[in-house]
Amino acid sequence: MSIRPAIGGENEMKAKIHVTLKQGVLDPQGKAVENALSALGFGGVSGVRQGKYIELELGETDPEKAQSQVEEMCRKLLANTVIEDYAIDIAEG
């Protein structure tokens, strides 16, 4: 939780980002987790895909600006768009 006072009465933003391997890109770790789940007796589990979850707080108070800022972060660093997709959820922090 931010202790900085919100500017103009608006709240700062929090971004929740999921980075996952693109469909079609093999995910050997996901496959290993799937096999381990079956070995534990969890039947009928399929399509396990492993990814990353990143959350961050933004000084930005405008949701649209926050969204575009985080998209740029994903393209430049947080995801490797050759192999990964990303999904961004912006909420008031």
Binding site: V25, P28, N80, I83
Partner: peptide, 17 residues
């Protein structure tokens, strides 16, 4: 070099983990 775009593609986790 792949991460900074000088070469195409990516290096992923070994298939055998």
């Amino acid at each position: 070099l792949t991460e900074c775009g000088l070469l195409p593609g990516a290096l992923m986790r070994n298939a055998g983990l």
